[in-house]
Amino acid sequence: MSSVYLANFTKCSLIVPETRIIAGLLLQGVEPREWERQVYELNVLQKRTAKTAATYANLARTRLQTMEEDLWYLVHEGSMPVATHAVLAATVKFSPLFGDFLRTVVRDQFRRFSTHLELRHWDAYIEDCQRAQPDMPGLSDSTRGKLRQNAIRMLAEAGFIEDTRSLRLRSQAIEPAVLNYLRQQNEQYVLDCLQVCP
């Protein structure tokens, strides 16, 4: 990707259950006033504060809007594995900083027959990114920590590692329905990011 890397996943990970709800609202074509009613008044995402609800709703919508309605349908109506990989696809397109970690570092660990990912892999990757992209915004220690935490969570949620503690790598086949959508839409970058396992 040629765009400057952005630290745009500090607030949450894949948030699949919430994104399924937001996909439903997008498919209904709700107007702004109804969107606010659903998110704030009805609290469809079941969050404790309006701020958290808004953060999750807006991030889920922005990720989904990088893709077409057919993907929204997979998120909303698909099985949990399909929805998860569909959300992962939208997240990768919205967050190339995470996508390129999958495409380069995680793929490399599988090629090396490594059994585990290590936290230092993410830290070294961020250092490399900042050297390669002088225009990349500077990252505070807390921002780096949040990015790493959510990157690892997303890998676990998508099935590329067993859990966030062991970091044991798992070969993960992407759901065919998601692959079909990405191929039909010529989303080659996203395909490259998702298909990293042997």
Rank of each mutant, 00 (worst) to 15 (best):
T49H: 14
V30H: 06
W122P: 04
I174T: 03
N8M: 06
A158L: 01
Q185G: 07
A177C: 02
V16W: 01
E187W: 00
L194M: 15
R37H: 10
S140L: 03
L147I: 15
P198D: 12
P81T: 02
C129M: 13
E31Q: 12
V39M: 01
R111K: 09
R165K: 08
M154E: 06
R63E: 11
S3I: 08
T62P: 00
N186Y: 11
F160M: 00
T19W: 03
Q38E: 14
N43Y: 05
R165S: 04
L119Q: 09
Y40C: 12
L119I: 04
Y189H: 12
V178T: 04
L102N: 03
S114M: 07
Y73N: 07
H85M: 09
V190M: 08
A57Q: 09
G78S: 15
S114R: 10
L6E: 11
R107D: 02
N58P: 01
R20P: 04
D163K: 05
E175R: 09
F94Q: 10
C197I: 02
P32E: 12
N8E: 07
P176S: 11
N180R: 14
D70Q: 09
K146W: 07
A124C: 05
G24T: 05
N58A: 08
P96N: 05
T52N: 12
Q28S: 09
R61A: 13
R165N: 04
E68K: 15
R61Q: 13
Q184I: 05
Q130W: 10
W35N: 03
L14S: 00
P137F: 13
G159L: 01
Y56W: 06
Y56L: 11
L179K: 06
A132Y: 10
A132L: 14
T52C: 07
L194R: 12
R120K: 15
M67L: 10
Q149I: 07
N180A: 13
M1F: 05
R153V: 02
T62Y: 02
R103N: 10
P134S: 04
L169W: 01
V4F: 12
A60T: 01
L182S: 13
K146V: 02
L155S: 00
H121V: 00
A57W: 03
C12E: 15
D123G: 09
A177G: 06
G159A: 00
P198L: 06
L88E: 13
V30W: 04
K93L: 09
Y73R: 14
L155A: 00
G99V: 15
P96C: 06
A90R: 08
V75I: 10
Q46G: 09
D163M: 04
G99D: 14
N180S: 12
L102A: 03
Q130D: 06
R103D: 08
V30I: 11
S95M: 02
F9C: 11
C193S: 01
Y73S: 10
T143D: 08
